[in-house]
Amino acid sequence: MNLKTLGVAALALATTSTLAFAQARDTIQVAGSSTVLPFASIVAEEFGNAFPAFNTPVVGSGGTGGGFRQFCEGVGPNTIDIANASRPISAAEIATCNTNGVNQILEVQFGFDGIVFATSTSQGDFALTPLHVFKALAAQVPVDGVWVANPYTNWNQIDPALPDQAITLVIPASNHGTREVFQTRVIDAGCHEVGGAEAQCTTFRTDGRVVEISGDYTETLARLQSAPAAVGVFGLSFYEENRDTLKVASVSGIVPTLETVADGTYPVSRPLYFYVKGEHIGVIPGIAEFVTYFLSDEMAGPGGFLQDAGLIPEPDDVRAAALAGFEARTVVAPR
């Protein structure tokens, strides 16, 4: 009977599926930060092409936090080998990892990313400071020394030098690693300048002038297209790819460029990392080669492939130190 053979086939399929997880994996599996994803994907693709002996690594997203969660699930072929991150791993995450048997967490810092404020090209020029941004989005701001509910509706009320435009800020939601950098480098900086307390620094206005985006930067861009007066927060590499529609704001007088972020004069930048599971080196083929290739001059070096894609490269000696740390299998210390 036709049906009988189909049934047998289905049963066979179900059996193989339950058996197969025992088999070893021969493809490196990476997941994590969506900021690092484009860079990791490019390296993965070039790695697969340059090393015929290894498969092309698979790069998933899921955000920095999601990547660490998968990374710390344990050791074995059905857990990922490398977690991409746009912030350092936290002590709590290291503790989770250790509980689940992941003890060799190797940290590799491979470059920098700038965070920029950008508007639609049709809008006025913004020269922002952390204090401007804080005053634009905090729930409470000091006016004449007294903390009151945020009265500002237009940028030029905060500072007459800013354009006469209604305040709308499109910022990344807290699932993004970008948000943490935005909070510490911009909001906290502005908040501490006027002596704000912890709660005053982290409570944002809720009258619809601050929009949190949990998706990627294309969603932020779409917001700016539908509400042209809005100011959006983007990664420098995203801005670089869309310079025809976006105009960038200076922060504290510094215009973000590859140079100003690389030399540290632009204040809102952060290092990018990936974390390697030491237990998997030698078990999943190609991990050590992949890391070495990632840090090579051709990829993460100045003038390399990743710089063309928007990464701000580290100086040669810093990359050499990162590689040496990896090769010595230096386990990351909680901080």
Partner: peptide
């Protein structure tokens, strides 16, 4: 996890 970047 089918949204990963796969080049094979």
């Amino acid at each position: 996890g089918m949204s990963a970047f796969v080049a094979n």
